[in-house]
Amino acid sequence: MHLLFFLSAGVSIAAVLLICIFLFSRGIPAIREIGVQEFLLGKVWKPSSDLYGIFPMIIGSLYVTAGAIAVGVPVGVLTAVFLAFFCPGRIYRFLKPAVDLLAGIPSVVYGFFGLMVIVPFIRNTFGGSGTSWLAASLVLGIMILPTVIGVSEAALRAVPKSYYEGSLALGATHERSVFRTMLPAAGSGVLSAIILGVGRAVGETMAVIMVAGNQAVMPSSLTKGLRTLTANIVLEMGYATDLHREALIATAVVLFVFVLLINLSFSAVKRRKG
């Protein structure tokens, strides 16, 4: 039985190794064939004429993530502050499960909501098709809310109560104590929350596809469409062959490396805190 437990524990390691092997063994040769520079910095993605530049998609992922952070983090952190320090118990008992529910809603449902509500709104307000960077940022911003709220709230609650009381005793108001003492003290926890949110936003696929427009060009404005790395894979994997298919796997390699970097920075923040 001991051996069985040991082997089970090894499955995680084996899974990561297998994922690396399968992605890298197909992706790296493709990148080499296309040329590292042409692949990563090439601005044209046109598989029909053998042009595989994913720079627009890298930028697209970065833009969408930045947008999601800009939307989700202020609202999320303020909501966490509300839940931790301002919320009457009666409202909390309703609000907390509601936020958890928000975390559980499948991403296609978010995408569908974005498509039916946010996209038409943008279309009517700013013109254009509505599927855009802005739409994707709003939808993703909503999607990362539960992550940001949950982790930030836990961090805020972990700050010793004596900090707050000390601040009050020095004559600060409740609000000032919360914002000048508790929030900075929970800083690294809030930062972890943001990094987790970034991870979720970078990896999100289905909701983005439905609202971002998916044009494989450099994003030009907030109300124009863009394509993310994840979208690139889902949209074309179904019919891609040969080098095109390998290029999509290489796209996943780039995505994978991004996520590893995010994970590393997350554990760095966690280590500093501990």
Binding site: A9, G10, S12, I13, A15, V16, L18, I19, F22, L23, R26, G199, V202, G203, E204, T205, T230, I233, V234, M237, L248, I249, A252, L255, F256, V259, L260, I262, N263, F266, S267
Partner: peptide, 26 residues
Amino acid sequence: VKVVRVTAETLAGIPSIVYGLFGYLL
């Protein structure tokens, strides 16, 4: 144990589309 924890954390962070692609390949 440390390696298992790190790999489990890595697995938790991998986007689902990458899982999809991996599942497709394997």
